[in-house]
Design a protein around this nucleic acid. Structure first.
Length: 498
RNA sequence: GCCGAUGUAGCUCAGUUGGUCAGAGCAGCUGAUUUGUAAUCAGCAGGCCGUGGGUUCGAAUCCCUCCAUCGGCUCCA
């Protein structure tokens, strides 16, 4: 049938079918090779809209021909289609690239290069607050901060195995002029941390060693893959490596899950999925390390997730080349999935770097390594955070917490007094003293997503109060200055309470 | 990297088949106004139409190169 039709693609599919049963489905005059089912009838297809077209490799293989895929959607009613299109428009408004520009958080420059984000002052401070928050959590969990350089000798990555796996496809080595040494921009922090581990002798009593660093790394991502802040060529991981005894592995893994969940909770991230990424059993050559170690680490992850009662799903073939991992996945405004937090068990690097500790038996043993990054990268985390909150960050994190709007020029002096008081109380405050009507100032500052707008005029001056307007929620009545300050402090405390 | 699309003032966008096509709104600046919970009025200023070539008497407009962005694919240590 398909030969007569001249449909070479269907023929190829049929040739690869193994089960021996081939079914056809009909829809009017349209006959298709399909496992089924098709629609019962086409009557529910009433409102149709073609959304986009895109290239797609035949059978997902980039070495094969690329076909044009047409994307469209249909609904049984026109009104439903219209609603959907409105929803789509709304989702686009939450795009972190748009909001990031509007709120002056970050930018890109053609001259600096693609995929290399530039953090603007407001974005940098927001990021700093996230870092400090995590540093505090990690301190409580026994992590020790370390700092490592942005480059490392090529040999470092030959030892780690990364050079063999990614060397030719990655940024090329930097060569020193006279000694002809070769350095690579670091694409990950683990090899550096392994060398820190090795810098002193460890005994079983020293473990676990938990080394943490906000490490900026550079990866040569394919140009077509770059996407706002979610996929970039230079980014900062909230990285840490835990070196522990095999008997500590599960406990340590569980503690890391706790950190991730703590952070997600503090940031009201409830909408995530957890994915266990295992090795593809059909294609073991893709991975390094012994079968025994792979099995041990895969079991450790699965057991840890069971013990924490995580609702996980397993993906075969999604593991890193050196070990299985547990990923926390979150969707962006348009429903695209991104990996945020990641926890990975690794038996390979300790072996390649010949890491050791002296056991209670006075013999040399090999530690196990856990790679973990609760945010994944600060870039991606901020991006997803923007899309989830539509730029309305929690009070403790948001760049500007309060803006004071004097009703007219006459009240600017009082506004300044309020400004000084709040700033001295560590509340990030602005004044909008432009020569505009209050309505205009309210509108502009609402659009800037500043959580609290304080309107001050004659009444407020008299009572030494401020009139409070909560972003998106309208007038909230008035309060004295002192009450307002402690009200803000309380809200912040509640939010970052662990 | 691949397929397709896009690139005009700080931002969002108009510019019909190449011929007063350098335009608007917002933002900015200046002035007037002194404002009470989502846009006061008027004036002014802003652009090598992404880059480099080409076609043409004439290019924002047509062709090619490169750069960047967007939607997918592939990839994601």
């Amino acid at each position: 049938y398909f030969s007569e039709k001249g449909d070479e693609y269907k023929i190829e599919q049929i040739q690869d079918l193994e089960d021996g049963t081939i079914s056809f489905y009909n829809q009017g005059s349209f006959t298709d090779l399909c496992r089924g089912p098709h629609l019962q009838s086409s009557e529910s297809i009433k409102a149709i809209k073609l959304l986009s077209i895109a290239g797609a490799y035949w059978r997902g293989d980039e070495k094969r021909k690329q076909l044009t895929r047409v994307y469209g959607i249909s609904f049984p009613k026109k009104t439903m289609l219209d609603e959907y299109l409105v929803l789509l428009e709304e989702a686009k408004k939450r795009d972190h690239r748009k909001i990031g520009k509007e709120l002056q958080l970050f930018t890109f420059s053609q001259k600096v290069g693609q995929g290399l984000p530039l953090w603007l002052p407001k974005g940098a401070k927001l990021r700093e607050r996230l870092e400090n928050f995590l540093k505090k959590v990690q301190k409580d969990y026994g992590y020790e901060p370390v700092i490592t350089p942005h480059i490392g000798q090529k040999e470092l990555y030959v030892t780690s195995g990364h050079y063999e796996k990614y060397g030719k496809d990655s940024f090329q080595p930097i060569k020193t002029p006279s000694e002809n040494e070769e350095f690579l921009l670091k694409p990950m922090n683990c090899p550096h941390h392994c060398e820190i581990y090795k810098s002193s002798r460890k005994t079983f009593r020293d473990l676990p060693v938990r080394l943490a660093e906000f490490g900026t790394v550079y990866r040569y991502e394919q140009s077509g893959e770059l996407h706002g802040l979610t996929r970039v060529r230079g980014f900062t991981q909230d990285d840490a490596h835990i070196f522990c005894r095999p008997d500590q592995l599960k406990e340590e893994f569980i503690k890391v899950i706790d950190i991730v969940l703590t952070i997600f909770k503090a940031l009201s991230f409830s909408d995530f999925t957890t994915q266990i990424s295992l090795r593809d059993p059909e294609d073991k050559e893709k991975y390094i390390g012994s079968d025994e170690n792979w099995e041990k680490s895969e079991i450790a992850i699965i057991e840890a997730c069971d013990e924490k009662g995580l609702d996980t799903f397993v993906e075969l073939g999604e593991a890193a080349f050196y070990g299985p991992k547990l990923d926390f996945m979150v969707k962006d405004a348009l429903g695209r999935e991104w990996q945020l937090g990641t926890i990975q068990v690794d038996y390979n690097l300790p072996e390649r770097f010949e890491l050791e500790y002296i056991g209670s038996d006075d013999k040399r043993h090999r530690p196990v390594m856990i790679h973990r990054a609760p945010f994944g990268s600060l870039e991606r985390f901020v991006a997803v955070m923007i899309e989830h909150t539509a730029g309305k960050f929690p009070l403790w994190l948001t760049p500007d917490q309060v803006v004071i709007l004097p009703v007219s020029e006459k009240y600017v002096d009082y506004a300044k007094k309020v400004f000084n008081f709040l700033n001295n109380s560590d509340i990030r405050t602005l004044i909008d003293d432009r020569d505009e009507k209050v309505g205009k100032k309210i509108r502009d500052n609402e659009l800037k997503k500043i959580p609290y707008l304080l309107i001050v005029g004659e009444k407020e001056v008299e009572g030494n109060t401020v009139s409070i307007r909560r972003q998106g929620e309208g007038d909230q009545g008035s309060m004295t200055l002192e009450d307002f300050a402690s009200f803000i402090h309380k809200e912040v405390e509640l939010q970052i309470q662990l």
